[in-house]
Amino acid sequence: MNITRLCSCFCLIIAVVLLPLSATGDDTYTSQTIDDLFIVKLPDGWSNFAVNTYTGMAAGVMNNSDIANVISIQVYQNMDCSMINRENLKVNLDEFNAKAGIAALSEPVYGNDTITQYGKFYDGKTSHLFLRLFEGDVVAVFGSYGNMEDAKTKSEEFIAIATSVTPLHPSTNELCQADNQEPSPATTVNNTTIRSETPVS
């Protein structure tokens, strides 16, 4: 009887000690500010660094214990001002892939204002690409992996990081201003109705 009671107490002590550890282990992603450009939830043990980019502000993050795999974050102006999110995302995806040299390997997976896709760089590495529309701009997050298997293995981690990115200083989007102007008023000259090419103030 005493042995049974002792075992029960021992199991209870183990449960009390281990349960808090497992509960805290589920949320290993902490919000970090990167170069005063982004807020992003990164796992412990990750570092960040500036990267060169053709589109705007950018930063790279990597796992200190797995430096071969790098995730880059960029924000750039929206290339399509339509209100249809799917078409908007498709235009931006094509534009980004063309500039970054990423060839499509998978069908894009669309969300309401996000899109994900696997691609391949010219150097043979695989990319897991995530685009999100954010206040008129496009947030692009893409991981560089050795092969498709590696990219898919780290897919859950990549998506958790990518969906958390918030730019602190979105780029000034001037592309949509011209597209969203009101139609120019019609004017009549010699009984012929014409429409001005530029807005009439």
Score class of each variant (00 low, 15 high):
Lys125Cys: 08
Gly143Asn: 09
Ile115Glu: 05
Glu174Ala: 04
Gln77His: 06
Glu135Leu: 12
Gly124Arg: 03
Val40Ala: 13
Asp44Asn: 15
Ser8Ala: 15
Leu175Trp: 08
Gly136Ser: 02
Phe142Ala: 09
Gln32Arg: 12
Ala104Cys: 00
Lys154Ala: 10
Thr187Gly: 06
Asn2Thr: 07
Tyr76Met: 01
Gln177Gly: 02
Val91His: 08
Met1Leu: 10
Asn63His: 13
Gly60Phe: 13
Leu12Cys: 11
Met57Tyr: 11
Phe158Val: 02
Ala103Lys: 12
Tyr118Pro: 04
Ser31Cys: 04
Met1Val: 06
Glu135Trp: 11
Pro20Gly: 04
Leu42Tyr: 06
Leu131Gln: 07
Pro199Lys: 06
Ile39Asn: 15
Ile39Met: 13
Arg132Cys: 01
Thr188Gln: 13
Val139Glu: 02
Thr116Asp: 02
Phe121Leu: 12
Thr192Phe: 12
Arg195Pro: 01
Ser201Asn: 11
Thr28Tyr: 10
Ile14Gln: 02
Ser72Tyr: 15
Val109Asp: 14
Met62Gln: 14
Glu174Thr: 07
Phe49Trp: 01
Ala104Val: 04
Thr55Val: 13
Asp26Lys: 13
Ser171Val: 11
Pro170Trp: 05
Phe96Gly: 01
Val165Tyr: 10
Glu156Arg: 05
Asp150His: 11
Ala23Cys: 13
Val138Phe: 05
Asp137Thr: 09
Asp44Leu: 14
Lys154Ser: 10
Asn173Tyr: 08
Asp179Leu: 15
Ser171Glu: 12
Asp113Cys: 00
Gly111Asn: 01
Thr198Gln: 13
Ala160Val: 08
Asn112Leu: 11
Gly143Leu: 12
Leu105Gly: 07
